[in-house]
Design a protein around this nucleic acid. Structure first.
Lengths: 218, 218
DNA sequence: AAAATATTAATACAACCGTATTAAATTAGG
DNA sequence: CCTAATTTAATACGGTTGTATTAATATTTT
């Protein structure tokens, strides 16, 4: 039985796995290529250390999402909801685009797990995404006011998330339409834009809510 | 040489290919499964009619994008930019979500082509996406005013597109966070929300532009 | 109807996949 | 230092893939 202690081959396999899984996707990534990338001449090392190709991938997924979780903003109920929205957008954009949209291996695996999820997605969503989503729903509810229905709060969260995530999955198309653009160089401006744009959207919806409740009075 | 005339086996292979490529992705879809789905007992029929697996996929791609193009709104310069934006959002959401976000085969292939593009992506983008993007940029420029810099116009287009596309690629995660939600039932409301939200964002940016130019006056 | 062509069918093949097996080499413990 | 355990190495195996080959059948053309 391989122990879990510090082992350089094991670590090499993990980081090589991240690289190859990101570039090729789960199915097209081969254990032979990962081993070669990890300077492990024997193709059996993945089975030795992780039981199987899927075992390696599971461990990589855990590694990536806990890393995301570590960088994500800790709850700060003392901040105004505006500042919390700004923080959410900025840190998310930074995580996704700081190293460049297409170049980041972690972003690539993150996206492939969204579009074609592995068997581990339910667990990942429950442990990592759900708590953050609930916190963000609360934040948006504060921004929209207590009269905002749940559907509207959810729609706003989707509007914000959709903007943030766009480059991460549409990059192969976008980069061909705007070849000169670089998310690495402009991710901070993009975060600013998403914040401004979204505050405008939220403002309109809030106003719309108010006029509706006034109509109900008459 | 196989002729291009009407042939039921050929058509069966095309529609079976759409189904299987959508469900499995290009690599994991096998010619054997496609042939079985098409009631073609011989696994050689794909090579016979399309030369190769890739040849079948290329023809399917062409079929899908020309279909998208057919449903997309024709240019209507007489309409106000607001109405054109509304039309753009509505028709796009309808195309993507009318049959349900996860269930639509065309949407699945569309998304997989965005996230992990085939060798044909450049040609597809040039012939189908670029003209629409340019028309939408013009529309947004009208909404933002003549002072709006190109980067702002482009950012707004990304903001709108990101919202529209969100469900198409994030569905495996979103549906686990909100299991009761159905895009099929609510795609029209979603289009309404995206329009309202985006007009709010555009309005704020326009106001911001105006105040900036006033500062420049002093 | 006969000949030419198009289509379907069945099988073969080389390449690749993940994993199992077995042996050699290295390291750790007494 | 020698034994036991861990790690690396090399190879084998069964399965699946896309495609090529060859033959049989159906369709069209003359």
């Amino acid at each position: 039985m391989p122990p879990t202690e510090s082992n350089t081959t094991r670590k090499n396999l993990l980081s090589a796995g991240i690289t190859v899984f990101a570039k090729k996707g789960y199915k097209e990534a081969t254990v032979r290529e990962i081993c070669k990338q990890a300077d492990a001449l024997n193709i059996n090392s993945i089975n030795y250390y992780f039981g199987s190709k899927q075992g390696l991938y599971r461990e990589i997924l855990e590694l990536i999402f806990s890393e995301y979780n570590r960088h994500a903003p800790s709850p700060a109920p003392d901040l105004t909801p505006e500042k919390r929205l700004k923080r959410f957008i900025t840190t998310f954009c930074t995580m996704l685009y700081k190293g460049g949209a297409a170049e980041s291996d972690l972003t690539a695996i993150f996206v492939s797990e969204m579009t074609s999820p592995s068997p581990f997605i339910q667990d990942i969503v429950d442990r990592y995404n759900r708590p953050r989503v609930e916190a963000n729903m609360d934040m948006l509810r504060e921004l929209l006011g207590p009269d905002a229905p749940d559907a509207m709060v959810r729609d706003c969260l989707v509007s914000v998330s959709g903007q943030i995530l766009y480059y991460s999955f549409a990059w192969p198309v976008f980069s061909r339409l705007f070849p000169e653009h670089s998310t690495q160089a402009t991710y901070a401006q993009w975060a600013d834009h998403v914040f401004t744009f979204s505050m405008g959207g939220i403002h309109v919806l809030k106003k719309q809510l108010k006029s509706q409740s006034q109509e109900d009075m008459t």
